[in-house]
């Protein structure tokens, strides 16, 4: 399979300095993942686990104090790293190749302009069509999303929440981008509209053939839409695998707790909450960031962060308790370097 997005060792921190006190919040720490073409990659995790920061980073929408400190982000449609693009190339790339559907789509449309103007501002520079042809294309697209073309002459406040969400999806897909980033697009909607909107997103994604990163804390939504799932905890990816595998057989203790918290029909045992609170990302726990809340915590968990290790095809887990193959991250990195050095040495000889 071709890779649409490959993220390597991405680190993005919030760096602030107030009255000489330097503070860093490690919202995204050493994340490595890749999204294949035409795939929907789901990211799950509780609030403040760094999901939104990750999204902002790969969408090149960072603003100080958030800063990217290391790693690379490569999209298949770009010939270089995302952060090596200049302002103009970035503007050109946006929406044409990479678009977003945001959390709170209720408020993503300018309240004092008609929907028509938003389409013109967002899409027309990328489509390069004459005015009438452009609006014909937009209307055809709205048609596919089962939206009446009259929404174009409406103001956002005149549309219901579900319709605004549809308009936002139409806006994000009208240029047929290769990659779509969806950040909690269904969170503020009621369940009935949610189902409708999910179906719509799925339909659009299939039709355009774009790849997608879909972020939500709601695992039931992931079960319906995501092909693969990455579980984030405290700024790190702790487990990754196909949605099916993860929901059936979660390996990381945190994932297990997440899945166990889901209600099941017929299950009447009371749900137990995880003790403790999510760690502060300004001062994360040493070693594995989950260890203060982990029932399986061992000595090594407190000392060194476990490497996200491939344990089966397409399955990666970062937990010492799951398999002896999981090594501390720094040792794994050293080992990688060593094998690389061996290889190049062998090549030189």
């Amino acid at each position: 399979m071709d890779v649409a997005l490959s993220v390597r060792d991405l680190r993005a921190y919030y760096l602030t300095s107030h009255f000489g006190v330097e503070r860093e919040v490690r919202a995204v720490d050493d994340i490595t993942l890749s999204v294949e073409k035409k795939e929907i990659y789901g990211i799950a995790g509780e609030s403040s686990c760094g999901k939104s920061t990750f999204i902002r980073t790969i969408a090149a929408a960072i603003r100080p104090p958030l800063r990217v400190l290391g790693g690379s982000i490569r999209y298949s449609f770009l010939d270089r790293d995302l952060y090596d693009l200049d302002e103009r190339a970035l503007t050109e790339m946006r929406w044409k190749h990479l678009s977003c559907i945001l959390q709170g789509s209720m408020n993503v449309l300018n309240p004092v302009r008609r929907v028509r103007e938003s389409f013109k501002d967002f899409a027309s520079p990328h489509m390069g069509l004459a005015r009438s042809v452009f609006f014909d294309a937009v209307k055809a697209h709205l048609n596919r999303l089962r939206l009446s073309p009259t929404v174009l002459s409406a103001f956002p406040h005149e549309l219901s929440g579900g319709m605004r969400q549809r308009v936002a999806i139409a806006l994000a897909t009208v240029c047929r981008p290769e990659f779509i980033i969806a950040d909690e697009p269904t969170t503020a909607l009621d369940v009935v509209v949610q189902k409708d909107v999910l179906a719509l997103i799925l339909e659009m994604q299939r039709e355009i053939g774009s790849s997608m990163i879909f972020v939500t804390h709601d695992l039931t939504v992931h079960a319906n839409i995501s092909n693969r799932l990455g579980i984030m905890y405290a700024g790190r990816l702790v487990e990754e695998g196909s949605t099916r595998d993860i929901l059936r057989d979660p390996m990381h203790p945190y994932t297990r707790h997440l899945i166990a918290s889901l209600p099941r029909i017929g299950d009447v045992t009371p749900k137990k909450g995880l003790s403790g609170a999510p760690p502060s990302l300004a001062d994360p726990p040493s070693g594995c960031r989950f260890h203060p809340r982990c029932p399986l915590a061992m000595d090594i968990c407190r000392q060194a962060h476990p490497e996200l290790t491939a344990l089966a095809p397409g399955r990666r887990v970062a937990c010492y308790a799951v398999s002896p193959l999981v090594q501390p991250a720094h040792e794994a990195a050293a080992a990688r370097k060593a094998t690389k050095a061996d290889k190049s040495a062998a090549f030189l000889q």
Partner: peptide
């Protein structure tokens, strides 16, 4: 506001954002 952040994400022309999205809303 979300609509300004979203317009920036979409690479809408800066001057357009300043006039039609920001100033226009602040003007009322």
């Amino acid at each position: 506001e979300d609509y300004v952040v979203y317009a920036e994400l979409a690479g809408v022309n800066r001057r357009r954002i300043l006039t039609s999205y920001i100033m226009r809303n602040a003007l009322t």
